[in-house]
């Protein structure tokens, strides 16, 4: 994946046998300015998932998979209906969906 400089990409996928995952990735100056992970999945504790998401704001996008996994482990979040690998995949596809001028 070559991270785009700017723009917002979205990827939506129903995980087979699981839940719906929607991810928005917003880039600014080559960094991940904002990421939003939504859907009808479950995560316990819910507020810890919010902190995982917050830890991904403003990062270098190449670090997304590592920082996501580290934050999930650090916060002790268990996600049901969507896997961490699904979120990484959705992030990469959302990033790829950004139209580069």
């Amino acid at each position: 994946m070559t991270p785009p400089m700017s723009g917002t990409g979205r990827f939506v996928r129903k995980i087979p046998g699981g839940k719906l995952l929607k991810l928005d990735a917003e880039y600014a100056l080559g960094r991940l300015a904002r990421v939003s992970i939504r859907g009808d999945f479950f995560a316990h504790p819910e507020e810890a998932f919010d902190r995982v998401e917050a830890a991904l704001q403003g990062i270098d996008p190449v670090d997304f998979p590592r920082l996501l996994r580290e934050a999930v482990a650090r916060e002790g979040v268990i996600i049901y209906g969507v896997g961490v690998d699904d979120i990484v995949d959705a992030f990469e596809r959302a990033s790829d969906a950004i139209q580069v001028p």
Binding site: R38, F42, E46
Partner: peptide, 9 residues
């Protein structure tokens, strides 16, 4: 709506 859903969408 569920905790992780977007309200307006």
């Amino acid at each position: 709506i569920g905790y992780f859903q977007g309200l307006e969408e």
